[in-house]
Design a protein around this nucleic acid. Structure first.
Lengths: 178, 178
DNA sequence: GGTTGCATGTAAGATGTTACATGATTTA
DNA sequence: TAAATCATGTAACATCTTACATGCAACC
């Protein structure tokens, strides 16, 4: 269900788009929150059309390109999902999982891995800052919402993770020294 | 693969335990990072025994209880996974997804949903602080690692999310007013 | 004697990943 | 003309969720 919503939301944001374009857009916006391969996206779009959340139009450009558009029913579905206050939340985070298993290693080794994590988070953070600048550059005052809030969250997440990795590494280094 | 590692790590941390106990422990430690139902845990433990990462022992207490223990091979598997520097990371976060779709709503409605999110994050944060105090109370200076680092990360994550929700709500409120 | 908690598992279905498969267009 | 990119899909497999299924022990 969540993929469907994420995809429908992206489609509502970008406006009419092909599966291929959505896959790209997905990668550069919701990527740090949700990922999907084209093999999951194409069938999902077909299902949306079937259920009335979107419409398709085939473009006769020789490449079999298809353009999808959200319907009112689709928009309503997004609203329902976003407003529904079921507190049930699924999270699955390999990054955090790794960072946390590291504490099972001997302190010195764990500290080294954490320092490497810190570097990786810092690099990802720099990428996101660049992305933000790029998106900001081509955004008008009227339409700055969807993309930027998501990027903002990604930025904050990675700042926090970098700091956590640094603090954890420091703690492990102290233990290794003691 | 990740569930296997998360479970193996939890087993390494707690020491010999039954599937039931592991499921509980899992819920109160890695829960904000990874979730698993017992229907996934039991078969996974069986697989671990088959592949030599753990051993079982049946306890004749009439309840069919089984105690699992990590082997050296299992420990090695954890180390390999934690040190492997493949930068590939999967994340799937329903919380963030929702918070982010909210920006597709009319500003006033989006702001209201974000305020509700903020409250939910604050509540979850309070729960985690209580958990931390509880874990700290029964932790000695020698063994304060695994559980507390994970809780620390959960705490930081929820502080960040609460702040993000508040800031986003504020921004949406400003837009709704304008 | 009934309810809750302990304890383990299987089965069906949904979701997600990797690999297979195809073909047009653009660029070097 | 070869390689990269655009563009869509299916199939097999792995993973995860929900529901089904069972039985003992402790407590009230």
């Amino acid at each position: 269900m969540s993929l469907r919503i994420a995809l429908l939301g992206t489609l509502a944001f970008t406006g009419p788009a092909s599966g291929y374009e959505l896959a790209k857009q997905f990668d550069s916006s919701v990527n740090h929150i949700w990922q999907a391969k084209h093999s999951q996206i194409y069938p999902e779009l077909a299902k949306m059309v079937k259920s009335g959340a979107a419409t398709v139009e085939e473009v006769g450009d020789g490449r079999g390109r298809k353009i999808y558009t959200v319907t009112d029913a689709g928009r309503e579905e997004i609203t329902r999902w976003a407003c529904d206050d079921d507190p049930h939340r699924n999270v699955r985070d390999e990054t955090a999982l790794r960072g946390f298993l590291v504490t099972l290693l001997p302190p010195a080794q764990g500290a080294a891995v954490m320092r490497a994590e810190e570097d990786r988070f810092a690099a990802r953070l720099a990428e996101m800052e660049a992305l933000k600048a790029e998106v900001e550059a081509r955004t008008t005052a009227q339409s700055p919402r969807f993309g930027l809030y998501a990027i903002d969250l990604g930025l904050r997440t990675h700042q926090m993770l970098r700091q956590w990795a640094a603090d954890t590494a420091e703690d492990l280094e102290r233990r290794a020294g003691a």
